[in-house]
């Protein structure tokens, strides 16, 4: 097991390096001179030249990558073109807000998904099953930013019950003043994972229920709760893996929901950066989120293997 962990972690390192290479290239796939992508257009000439030297932009690409990476490793993600402020600090704040949103959406989506998925599996073929599957299909098919807009109209504009935008005053605290702001975006964001987890859980549970040993157990007249335990034990690795990845997707994929609700997280930061062609911010945010995702993948793999050693990746 220990050897596996070491090997798996070792494998994550080249992946992380290559991921940062992709992020590094973002500046270079942007049209025009990369220097124009990282300094404001009205920067005086001397200042431009200074940045060019500092980031080695006059050197070949591999050298540039090394220079950039050494900045990144020291926590320097460069400066925003629009605000001229260092990106790292803003990104930290924003990641915290996105994390709050993703955790909440994941909690809602996963509990709903597990509940509906198991329900559907146990009542396979009945109207309950069909209802749950219908919900799941709707969940993965709805353009969720549109759902968000509709909810704002109902709950903020017509009922004036919940705030329409933002994450509440100043820093995040888990109190009602702030949680009010979280409800609509979290529900909107939870729709997709809810639908997906419903499908996954349903599929996995049905598969397990059809397996020979369960049929045998049933034949032996085992109690419902005992049966449930078996199902949970066998379904957990697959379901956990999908959940882990989904959480990563929520962290990195909340850009539309954050934009609709002006939730001040990484997604909105990205959205604003895109409009301002603020490439350093796009690059920084992408890098941080992708690194988080790499880390999460690693954890999911390790946890999965710990639960069920058969799942080892070679």
């Amino acid at each position: 097991m220990l050897l596996y962990i070491v090997r798996r972690v070792a494998y994550a390192i080249p992946i992380a390096l290559l991921v940062s290479l992709v992020c590094f290239m973002l500046v270079h796939i942007a049209p025009g001179d990369p220097i124009d992508s990282i300094v404001p257009p009205d920067t005086p000439k001397e200042a431009v030249e200074q940045v060019r030297r500092e980031y080695g932009l006059d050197k070949p690409l591999p050298v540039q990558f090394a220079v950039w990476l050494s900045h990144v490793v020291q926590g320097d993600l460069g400066r925003s073109i629009a605000s001229r402020r260092p990106i790292a600090g803003d990104l930290m704040l924003a990641s915290g807000k996105t994390f709050v949103l993703a955790v909440t959406a994941a909690t809602i989506g996963f509990s709903l998904g597990v509940a509906l998925g198991s329900l559907a599996a146990f009542f396979q073929g009945t109207w309950i099953d069909r209802l749950c599957v219908g919900f799941a299909v709707a969940g993965v098919s709805v353009p969720h930013y549109w759902l968000g807009m509709v909810m704002v109209i109902i709950f903020s504009v017509l009922l004036a019950a919940l705030p329409a935008m933002g994450a509440g005053p100043s820093d995040w605290v888990w109190d009602w003043v702030h949680i009010r702001f979280l409800i609509l975006p979290a529900i909107t964001l939870s729709v997709i994972p809810a639908g997906l987890i419903t499908r996954t859980v349903r599929g996995t549970v049905i598969e397990i229920l059809n397996q020979d040993f369960i049929t045998t157990l049933r034949g032996k007249g085992i109690r419902r709760s005992g049966l449930l335990l078996h199902v949970v034990k066998n379904a957990a690795p697959t379901v956990l893996a999908v959940m882990g990845l989904q959480f990563g997707y929520l962290m990195g994929g909340s850009i539309l929901v954050e934009s609709v609700f002006s939730w001040p997280g990484t997604g909105m930061m990205l959205n604003n950066a895109i409009f301002r062609r603020d490439i350093p911010v796009i690059q920084g945010a992408t890098l941080v989120l992708a690194m988080f995702f790499v880390l999460l993948n690693l954890i999911v793999d390790l946890v999965q293997t710990a639960i069920d050693p058969r799942m080892r990746r070679t």
Binding site: S156, V157, A161, M165, G166
Partner: peptide, 8 residues
């Protein structure tokens, strides 16, 4: 507009 109407 939504922010105003929701009392934010």
């Amino acid at each position: 507009v939504a922010a105003l109407r929701s009392g934010q």
